[in-house]
């Protein structure tokens, strides 16, 4: 049992796969929170995506159609949340929790006939000889399409949030919805779209579990991934690239501790597993206490309902 038995290349390659579901869900939730909405229903949206993607993939025997279905299904359940919180002014925390409860039940109901079925395989992308390159081969050229798509979404989200007019509007809405409204921005419309985007990403993250990572359908198979995604957004201080870093760090800690165990190291698993959350709290404290760096803190209107008073 020595550390040299742990191959960093393989470690990185496998943590990328392990992190992809939470990365997808977290980047979606980041956009939602940037618009000033806290949706605690990530777990519910993920599992609805997981079951819908699985069902459609099995029916059509095409995993990509399944992923598409997961995106649509995630956005649709998110729409319930959007309707409650944006149109009917319901409390976001309670609505999000209700969405998770509903999503877990709904997915189980839909999934009853899909237990024990093997979905069509999602192949890894074929890069030909590139995959055999030392080091980079496995890390960069050894994955299925969703790993790349997730990275693409992170890049696109960063670009859109920071470099486009749409992104500026969304951030303005999240920082202070009253001023945004005064400027003539459509606060409610922006938020509904953001919530649907969040649902779509969470749905895709769920489908990654049921179609690529596991791949099979079982009730409750997301096993808390949605809650980790929520923590991740905070850990990342609402920045897309940090969500990526955070997801890989979370995934990395999990993969590393399993690898250390497999290599024969005695590690206190039960305590190590709480470390990501403790680290996140510390990061949160550092962020919120550093004055003058307001951009690192939570969006100003996070969790507050908006109703135009005129």
């Amino acid at each position: 049992m020595d550390l040299s038995s742990i191959n960093p290349v393989v470690l990185i390659a496998s943590l990328m796969v392990a992190a992809t579901p939470i990365l997808l869900a977290a980047i979606g939730e980041l956009v939602v929170e940037k618009s000033g909405v806290l949706n605690l229903g990530v777990e519910g949206m993920m599992i609805v995506g997981a079951v819908s993607g699985f069902a459609i993939a099995v029916t059509t025997q095409n995993p990509y159609l399944g992923m598409l279905a997961a995106i649509v299904a995630g956005a649709l359940v998110a729409l319930i949340f959007a309707a409650l919180t944006q149109l009917l002014m319901a409390n976001q925390v309670a609505s999000g929790l209700a969405l998770t409860l509903f999503g877990l039940g709904f997915s189980a109901l839909v999934g009853q006939n899909y237990v024990g079925i093997v979905p069509p395989r999602t192949p890894k992308l074929d890069f030909g000889p590139l995959t055999d390159l030392p080091v980079v081969g496995r890390i960069i050229f050894g994955h299925d399409i969703l790993v790349y798509i997730s990275l693409l979404i992170v890049a696109a989200t960063w670009f859109w949030l920071n470099k486009t007019q749409g992104g500026r509007v969304l951030r303005a809405v999240g920082e202070n919805h009253d001023s945004a409204h005064a400027l003539g921005y459509k606060v409610t419309r922006v938020r509904i779209l953001a919530i649907m985007f969040g649902g779509a990403c969470a749905g895709l993250g769920g489908a990654y579990l049921s179609l690529v990572r596991v791949p099979s359908w079982t009730e409750g198979m997301t096993a808390g991934a949605g809650w980790i995604a929520l923590a991740l957004v905070v850990f990342a201080s609402w920045r897309p690239w940090r969500v990526l870093a955070g997801a890989y760090l979370f995934g990395g800690i999990m993969v590393l501790q399993l690898n250390l165990q497999a290599a024969g190291f005695r590690i206190p698993v039960e305590y190590l597993s709480m470390s990501p959350y403790l680290i996140t709290i510390v990061v949160l404290v550092i962020m919120s206490s550093s004055r003058g760096r307001r951009s690192m803190a939570a969006p100003g209107s996070l969790g507050r309902s908006f109703h135009a008073a005129g």
């Binding site: 009917l88 319901a90 209700a98 409860l101 509903f102 039940g105 997915s107 009853q112």
Partner: peptide, 26 residues
């Protein structure tokens, strides 16, 4: 009945309660 059906039922109850709340304030 599968337990999932009850969960969905409870989810619906919460949705309706939260949704209709709007009527007392608006």
């Amino acid at each position: 009945l599968p337990s999932a059906a009850i969960q969905v039922f409870q989810g619906m109850l919460l949705f309706f309660l939260l949704a209709l709340d709007v009527l007392s304030n608006y």
